[in-house]
């Protein structure tokens, strides 16, 4: 295998991991605030079809991405209202959101099933993109990829360097203590859930307008669930989410190549591989119970009742 082939595989790996990076980092912020939103898959699906529809109708890809993010945020607003204002069970509501999102996206997508779309193109950056090997490896992507990197940096900074991030983590650990200190638990959780929804919607938009520019029912293919698993197995740390997502992308691409070479393994087993490998590796690196206790939001999934109001 030549250098070019390796570069191609690596580039494809990054492309395959972007939706997971976006959705999982969004969910990480949500869970750090103590809310468990299992609706990622559904929000991604709705983000995907809305972005695809906007792209087809307007031919404006950045507008489409924005619409996808907005659609995801709107979906998460339903979730936030039910779980944070009405204080319903988060697990049940999240599952319902996934079912709702999957169905809604199929319904919205009826007339877009066999429509072709010119997907997002790689942005060429003068000089940088022309550097041999490195230029291809680092500077040959579409806008989503660079945005995902930005999101990663921003979230890492926000959670561990800013006061607002500190408040968010404190709320995730003990909402009643944070409330006693004067933090607005419900407001912060609303914002976190909306951010998570927007990220999931954007991840969906990437899938339908950049990764494979088409709409097909069920095209999210469980990536929302993998994003959820990534957050847990990455022990709620952004860098590990990134590693897990790249790993998933890498195995996804590798199994295509294995199939291409013609090794006799059932295709179904190969399609299973990325999911299996990601979970296995993350389980192994997250065995340390101390790290989990330190990073897991202690109030995850528990509703917060204000006293005496």
């Amino acid at each position: 295998m030549g250098l070019d082939a390796i570069v191609l595989i690596l580039v494809a790996t990054v492309a395959a991991s972007v939706p997971l990076i976006l959705a999982a980092l969004g969910e990480l912020v949500v869970e750090k605030s103590g809310v468990l939103n299992l609706g990622v898959e559904g929000m991604m699906a709705v983000g995907a079809i809305v972005a695809f529809a906007v792209a087809v109708e307007t031919q404006q890809l950045s507008l489409a991405a924005l619409a996808g993010a907005l659609a995801g945020a709107l979906m998460s607003l339903i979730f936030a209202f039910i779980t944070l204002t009405l204080m319903a069970n988060q697990v049940a509501t999240g599952l319902a959101l996934t079912l709702f999102g999957t169905g809604l996206s199929a319904f919205l997508g009826l007339k877009y099933t066999s429509v072709a779309l010119d997907g997002a193109k790689a942005m060429t950056i003068p000089i940088l993109s022309d550097i041999p090997v490195l230029g291809k490896l680092l500077f040959s992507y579409n806008g989503f990829v660079y945005f995902a990197v930005l999101v990663f940096l921003a979230i890492s900074w926000f959670l561990y360097r800013s006061r607002a991030g500190l408040v968010l983590r404190a709320i995730g650990e003990s909402p009643s203590s944070a409330h006693a200190l004067g933090a607005s638990v419900i407001k912060v959780r609303y914002l976190a859930v909306l951010f998570g929804g927007a990220m999931a919607g954007l991840a969906g938009a990437y899938l339908s307008t950049a990764y494979t520019p088409l709409w097909a029912e069920g095209m999210i293919a469980g990536r929302g669930w993998i994003a959820l698993a990534l957050v847990v197995f990455a022990t709620w740390r952004p860098a590990r989410v990134l590693i897990g997502a790249l790993l998933f992308g890498g195995v996804t691409i590798a199994q295509f190549h294995v199939q291409g070479i013609g090794i006799e393994i059932p295709a179904q087993f190969l399609s299973m591989l990325p999911y299996l490998a990601t979970i296995l590796v993350l389980v192994v690196i997250s065995r340390d119970a101390g790290l989990i206790r330190l990073n897991a939001p202690a109030s995850l999934g528990q509703p917060f009742h204000k006293q005496g109001h």
Binding site: A170, E173, S174, A178
Partner: peptide
Amino acid sequence: FSLFETLTVTQNIALA
């Protein structure tokens, strides 16, 4: 105590 176990002393105080 209304302290956050996974944060440092300074962070706990900064929150208030």
